[in-house]
Amino acid sequence: MTEHEQILFACIDNCCYFKLSGELRYTNATGMDDLVERLFRQQMGCNRVVVDLNEASFMDSTYVGLLASLARYCQQQQLPRPTLFSTHSEVNELLFSLCLDQAFDIVQQPTHHNVNMAGVSAQHYSEQQQGLMILRAHEALIELNDSNKSQFQPVVDLLKQQLK
């Protein structure tokens, strides 16, 4: 992981903080995927989820899907909607176009919380594991709404075919 691609995480007072910065692509999403999966599998004591994207300069659909998975986790655990901070106009355009505002409270302002966070390392995924991560992320996007379904169903169908 480089300085430009960073995932920071902390769980403080039952609030899980994610800080994502740099270019967020499927090629560097394994650490985030692993963290979201661990959150689903074991209750980390999260009563609230906060995502800070203020230092993210780019995000692909796989990463947006991982965020959708995070929102789905909150919904399944009957937690409040997660809060997402983002001041980057291109990132915000993507979030709104893929309807993440239906799953997150999006705050287009800088964050001022000073939380001591730990870096999250990339995980070593096989090609198969990486394919499954991309598939899960896009399935989460499709679940958000119908326009995402029409946009990403062909991707999901192709991935399912390739992963057989």
Rank of each mutant, 00 (worst) to 15 (best):
Met1Ser: 12
Thr2Ser: 15
Thr2Asn: 14
Thr2Leu: 11
Thr2Met: 06
Gln6Leu: 14
Gln6Trp: 01
Ala10Tyr: 02
Cys15Met: 10
Tyr17Asn: 08
Lys19Trp: 01
Gly22Lys: 10
Gly22Asp: 08
Gly22Ser: 13
Arg25Leu: 14
Tyr26Cys: 03
Thr27Ser: 10
Ala29Gly: 13
Asp33Ser: 12
Leu35Cys: 11
Val36Lys: 00
Gln42Trp: 01
Gln42Met: 05
Gly45Glu: 07
Asn47Ser: 12
Asn47Tyr: 06
Leu53Lys: 13
Glu55Ile: 00
Phe58Cys: 11
Met59Gly: 04
Ser61Leu: 06
Ser61Arg: 08
Gly65Tyr: 11
Leu67Lys: 08
Ala68Phe: 06
Ala71Cys: 05
Tyr73Trp: 15
Pro82Tyr: 04
Ser86Gln: 03
Glu93Lys: 15
Glu93Met: 14
Phe96Gly: 08
Phe96Val: 14
Ser97Lys: 05
Leu98Val: 15
Ala103Gln: 13
Phe104Ser: 07
Ile106Arg: 05
Ile106Tyr: 06
Gln108Met: 14
Gln109Asp: 12
Thr111Ala: 02
His112Ala: 06
His113Met: 08
Asn114Phe: 10
Asn114Ala: 08
Val115Gly: 04
Asn116Glu: 14
Ala122Ser: 03
Ser126Ile: 04
Ser126Cys: 04
Ser126Tyr: 10
Glu127Arg: 02
Gln130Thr: 12
Leu132Pro: 01
Leu132Gln: 01
Glu139Ala: 01
Glu139Asn: 02
Asn145Arg: 00
Ser147Glu: 13
Asn148Asp: 03
Asn148Gly: 09
Val156Asn: 02
Leu159Trp: 12
Lys160Arg: 11
Lys160Asp: 00
Gln162Thr: 11
Leu163Phe: 12
